[in-house]
Design a protein around this nucleic acid. Sequence first.
DNA 1: TTTTAGCACTCTCGATGTGAGAGTGCTAAT
DNA 2: ATTAGCACTCTCACATCGAGAGTGCTAAAA
Lengths: 344, 344
Amino acid sequence: MIGLTERQKLILALVIRDYIETAQPVGSASLVKKYNLDISSATVRNEMVALTEKGYLRQPYTSAGRLPSEDGYRYFVRQLMGHTELPMTTRDTIAHQFYQAGQDVDRWMRLAASVLAHQSQAASLVTAPHPEQARFKHLELISTYGRQVLMVLVLSGGDVRQQMLALAEPVNQEQLSTTANEINESCQGLQADQISGMSGRLDALEQDILKLIVDDMHRSGEMLGGEVYRDGLTHVLAEPEFAEMEVARRAMRILEERALLEDLLSRTVLTANVGGVQVLIGGEGDWEELRECSMVLARYGVPGLATGALGVMGPIRMAYGRTISTVRFVAGLLSDLVVDLHTE
Amino acid sequence: MIGLTERQKLILALVIRDYIETAQPVGSASLVKKYNLDISSATVRNEMVALTEKGYLRQPYTSAGRLPSEDGYRYFVRQLMGHTELPMTTRDTIAHQFYQAGQDVDRWMRLAASVLAHQSQAASLVTAPHPEQARFKHLELISTYGRQVLMVLVLSGGDVRQQMLALAEPVNQEQLSTTANEINESCQGLQADQISGMSGRLDALEQDILKLIVDDMHRSGEMLGGEVYRDGLTHVLAEPEFAEMEVARRAMRILEERALLEDLLSRTVLTANVGGVQVLIGGEGDWEELRECSMVLARYGVPGLATGALGVMGPIRMAYGRTISTVRFVAGLLSDLVVDLHTE
DNA sequence: TTTTAGCACTCTCGATGTGAGAGTGCTAAT
DNA sequence: ATTAGCACTCTCACATCGAGAGTGCTAAAA
């Protein structure tokens, strides 16, 4: 396929810009008038025919205005858009908010979701960072009532997992502490596989607990270990493309159902390198659910140490420039957080 | 206001039942036919006039069918409905699912939200149980990297709070453990106020940490300490009363915005005694947001020990019988969980 | 060869009109 | 007190129609 002339690129960009703004098909005459083009509407029409033939524009029906096709958006995002950045003042404001959140991961996540949703006027998703290769760090066994014991497992990267367990018979706190200390010494810095491969003379209690530890460490390695932070669901509903209830419900299902999200994030975001932002337009691939949606996704964190994912979901008619730069910026901030949490 | 005759009660109940099912105004003739009443449609019409005058029914426009007014629903829920219970088989199925979730609080919460949403075909909300009067149980200080220290605080009832903190200068693990042990001994079983009132010769490190502990304990006492579990948002969108986007967005905002939820749960549910289910029809009081919505709310847990809240939000035209019994049943199950977690 | 004016044609969208249908309220008879 | 009968009301679905925006084509102009 032959590339586009400069004029065609201009017209494509303007159509996309106008359509994103108004949600209405764009006519040749109105385009000329609105942007003071010094070519006639007939010329624009001719170029529009060319762009339509190349598959970048489409018409909702014969002799209506043009609007971008999915390929048109893709071309725009990849070739035309350039690396925009959020304005300095906006970046400062956001960074300041995060600074005020201190080291509280929960607050960071909530704030990230809120900022993403607000800046992009769409729905946002953020997962907490979690270690990719969890290493054992510390175990604590705390007797609560009778045979009930609270097990607190600390993994590298500050990932803490807690669990209640009921012992076969009562064990006092002293015994528990002894057991915990033994395990702490022998498992320090080990990964799940190494621990599960351990044997030697262990009593029943120790074996049970080691098993639980290994399970927990594996679970910590899963894609969506913890909570998924969401925000801006209502923004999506406000868009005219979701006026049809069925469409709106489909979009909401993606955001609501953990299983769908899990699948989505693991399939797409895992492949993208950290720092890079991935743009999914109109559910490329076989994503029935988000045929009417676009997503802008990114991973953040330090590969091999701890990473998380974040993203925005909105209509295909999305302000990609602003959204992508916001996602990139917030991903950067969260990466900094991860670094802070793991280094001195 | 004079009460209703038996026949009026019957007709009111049938209108509500039919309207809940069909979402269409109910006519006198169709009511007689559908439920094989042995009175004529004219009689029903007369009774309907009476019910309308008393404020229990209303007409969307002159000479259309009748539908329940908010007062009608209230009368129904309070006087007419009786204490229905979920069918035995359903209860067993649900209880079994919870049983399989073991002692994992997170799984219980998710399951509770899912069951509520599914049974009531509406949106559900569940908050994790948290102690009302947190008592200090155990503190752990774990050195991670350099001056970064992970503080794990265990409160009565298995509430675990973690936090990263950066010390002014590096402290080794041994020193940290000593400090933690001292605090553990002196604070065992104390409440926040008692700890904040403590003094004596404490070094700077201990004072800092005690301050953090007190803060954390207070935060643990707040209404919505942790995550709010949601499910079934899409069910709400499927209801015809939310076809109008503005209405749908308003409903979603309630579910999305923490601040609104917090306010809602604290104002209403705190006043209800545990075990009792509270029904909010059409946002009684000044709840602009949920004018078109009803909520069925309950607290669960053991007062004074640990409690949580759960509820369902749907259109005013809600299957109150089924929803109320589900909420009551699930609240009971979750209360059992709380008891299990706190006793032998 | 490219651009542009001119013009007929297409298609949507909102306004308007109409008839069927469901339901009421009233009156008079049972 | 109940009911049959009936005129009347109001909505909703459907069809009609004209305005308006926009296209595609042709032929002239640059």
